[in-house]
Structure formats: C-alpha cells, structure tokens
Nucleic acid binder design. Structure first.
Lengths: 245, 245
DNA sequence: TAAATTTGTTAGATAACTCTAACATTGTAA
DNA sequence: TTACAATGTTAGAGTTATCTAACAAATTTA
C-alpha cells in the first residue's frame, strides 16, 4: 500500500521533471515533431498513417514514437484518435524549422547554392545544437523573414507569421501579381521553375485562363507567353502589388 | 553439407561487398575512426583502454566497436593486441578531420567566431554528408591548408602534410620564432592565449629561460615581458623565420 | 446494416550501441 | 617467479528505433 503510494508520487515527480527540464529530443524525435507540425490540419490533427507515410516508417513505428512524444509532453494522443502537438511540441518543431530555413537561406545567399540544392543539406544541419551558429547566420543575412522558397522563418520564440499568399490558380485573366512563395519545394518543381527562369519576386501577368483544364498563359520579364498547367499554378503562391506589409 | 557450403560462399560474397561498396559509417563509427586516428602512435597502434578513455565509453564497448570496424575493413585487430587502422580506415578518418577543420576555419574566418568557440560546433558539422557544402567552404576560404589552431587540413584524398613545427620549449634564449600552431586546442588553453593576446603568426622572442622549472620569459608585439610555464611552452608550436615553404 | 476496406494497435523480434559483472591475459614488481 | 596490478574479453542485459505478423477498431460501400 505504502509502496504503491511512493510509486505514484515518484511518477508525478518524473512527469513534472519531463515537462520542466529540457530533455533534448533525439534527431529521430525532432524529425517526428517536424513531420507532425507540417502535417497538422486546421484542427492541428495528424493521423498515424500520414505520419508513418511522411517519415517512411511503418505504422507501428509511428504509433510507438507518438507514445514517446506524449511521455515527454510534446504531443497528445488517444488510441484510435489523431495526434495533436502540444504548445511545447509546436514550439520545439517551429524552432527546428527555423534552423532548417535559416540554413537554406544561408546556403543560397551566402554560399552560392541554388534553391534546388539546399533542402538535403538543411535537413542535416537543422539538427545541430549550437544556438550561436544559427544566430550568426541570421545576423549575417540581416534577419531574413522567409527562406529561399518564400516560406516564413519562425522567430526565436517559435512564432510563425502567416503570409496568406494566394494561389496563382485563383487569379483572373488580366491580373498582375508577384511570385512570392512556393507550395512545393521539391527538387523537380524547383528545376522546372529554373528552366523557365521563374524566380521569387518575378512580376507575372495572367494573359489568359483556359476554362477546360484550368491552365494559364502568363507573361513575365522577357517571356511573352508561357503556359502553366493547373498543377503548376496551384503550387505558385502570389501576392498583389498592394499587399506588401 | 551443401548448406554449409552455401553459407560459406555467401559469407565470402558479403565480405567482398563490405570492402568494395561504400557502406556509410555511422556517426558513432566516424567518432571511433577519428579517435583511432588521433591516438595512433608512431606504429599506428592504439590500445583499447586509450580508445575507451578518449571516447568516454567502457572498454567492452570500445572492444566490440573495434570488432565492427574490422568487419568493414576499417581497422585490424587481434585479441589482446593494439588496434591498427587500415589505409581505408585512415583515409576515412582523415576525411572526417578534413570536414572538422574546414568547418572550424570557416566559422572563424567567415562567420566571426573565436578560435575557442569552434570545436564544439565542428564536432557536429563534421558528420554532415554533403560534399558540396564542404567544397564551397573550402573555395570561399581560398583552400586553406591549416585550421584556426594551426593543424593541417587533410586534402580531398585524405593526405595530411606534416608541418613538423618545433616546441617553443626547445627554443634557446635569444631566439626569435613565429607562433605557428598549438599542440592543445582546449577551450581553457585558447582562453589563456586570448587573455595574453597570443595569436598564430605572432613573432616571439625568447628573452630568457629558467633552468629550474623550464619556464620562459618571452616578448612579442607590445608585450615586453611575459612568463610562460613549461607546460604552456610545450603546447606552443613555432617555426623559425626561414622555414616558410 | 452487414461486409469489405482502411486505419490503427499489440506482440514479438532485430540491430546498433551502450552498460556492469565476471573472468582471462599480460605486464610489473616483490 | 610468483603474485599483484593493469589491461582486455566475454556474457548478459538495457535502450532506442525499427520491422513483420496478427488482430482490432473505424470507416466506407454495397
């Protein structure tokens, strides 16, 4: 009876410790946090199968890791329910994403890499534990707010600004917009954009829109006519001239 | 009988694969390789106890990892004998050290870090698998041959030049030398040197030498008299004016 | 709504890296 | 040269992160 009671008190004590003391997440855990963050829908929910798929692990693996993350207070999870990040988990995820995006920006602006080359390197650098290293990058770049693909860089507190760009696919014929960000930063898509000389900041004019397949003809720079499929238009995020902050 | 024979053939096949195909060494294995490389004496030998001590693991742990490294052809080892790196193991170790030292130099020359701050960061960055990342660093720095502590940077083939500096402790009274490298790059020692304004490239004059405790009085720059203990003198590597390559 | 499909869980195993305890070998010193 | 000390090895176990096989729940579809 007494023993049970002691165990109970100890378990409270350690639960307290785990939420208060920073037990560094392993690289694996960091990857799960990032995946959960990126997969979160409007309700902040993620299904185990999506998580497993994203990380290319089996469902039992994802399931058991989610249980671990819950023990350290980084997510909430109930059997057969979707996973939710806690505020602590969200913050930790955002800070990893901060390191990722700062690194990508540094590689492009300070080291001469192409925007299609940086993801794989940043994927490794983001796990480095050296606050000063990332602070120096940030400083050297003049505190950028977006990465080379237009995605916002979370601040030191893990807060992310919501840029709320529009999809190019929503633009009307005749409209002029600025290419501001991408909804897909895969190497393939970036190389597609490279081959068309489409860079962030480019002013685009929607020449026409094809009702049949939602493809668009646009013009920009020296390019008079370029046809973009619906699929491409949905991946291009744009802002209107007025909408600078 | 037939089964045994098949097993034997398979084992030969996999041994062959392991020596031919690049099975990436894990971060842990990389740390063992580096430690073996750094601890190697003139005969290239390392005792298990030294290795275990260097990596702060138990002897059984070091012992079993050495067996793994042997399986992948990175070291040679016989029961109760010291460990030896193979040429393949030496090369792999040197290439990790190359990444470490390039990183240290980059952090100091391109990112404004102090030489006492860079070791811990480089210790993490050295495990990044991204040849282009390190090649760009190298290029941006103009292909440096030494790191911020004067240690040589191995080339892309893993070859290390032997700079053969002398110990300051061997210098005679009256002699003038240039501080070229350090035999100890611990934070404590680097901070000691910082506090005395002793940097690589500084011209030192040996004012006098104390026979009793082997301490030295030196002068350099604006400093007329500075007493250095024997311990410090042994950690300072110097070259004479003539000995530039 | 019952059956089929999808999604999620449990159980049990494996690989990598680590440990301690116990034992074996080698080297050193009485 | 025997005994002690130092060094090295084996055995067995724990942790983390992964898997497959089998089962269970939830959801979709007929």
């Amino acid at each position: 009876m007494l023993e049970l009671s002691n165990k109970f008190i100890l378990s409270i004590f350690f639960t307290y410790l785990s939420t208060q003391i920073l037990i560094m997440a392993s690289t694996t855990e960091e990857n799960y946090l990032k995946a959960l963050f990126n997969l979160s829908n409007e309700q902040g929910e993620v299904n185990i199968s999506e998580l497993a798929n994203q990380l290319q692990v089996s469902m039992p693996t994802a399931n058991s890791m989610v249980k671990n993350l819950q023990k350290t207070g980084l997510c909430v999870y109930e059997k057969y329910k979707p996973v939710l990040l806690t505020p602590k988990g969200k913050k930790e995820a955002a800070l990893i994403i901060r390191k990722h995006r700062l690194t990508e920006m540094f590689l492009v602006t300070k080291m001469g890499f192409g925007w299609e080359e940086v993801h794989a390197i940043a994927e490794q650098v983001e796990h480095i534990h050296a606050p000063k290293f990332f602070e120096r990058m940030d400083e050297m770049m003049g505190f950028p707010t977006v990465d080379p693909h237009g995605s916002p860089i979370p601040d030191k507190q893990g807060r992310i600004q919501d840029l709320r760009f529009k999809n190019l696919s929503e633009a009307k014929a005749g409209q002029e917009v600025i290419l501001a960000a991408l909804a897909d930063s895969s190497t393939e898509f970036l190389e597609y954009l490279n081959s068309r000389n489409l860079t962030l900041g480019t002013e685009l004019k929607v020449v026409s829109k094809e009702a049949f397949d939602q493809s668009m003809v646009i013009s920009y720079g020296d390019v008079e006519k370029e046809t973009l499929s619906q699929k491409v238009c949905e991946k291009l995020l744009v802002k209107t001239f007025g909408s600078e902050e």
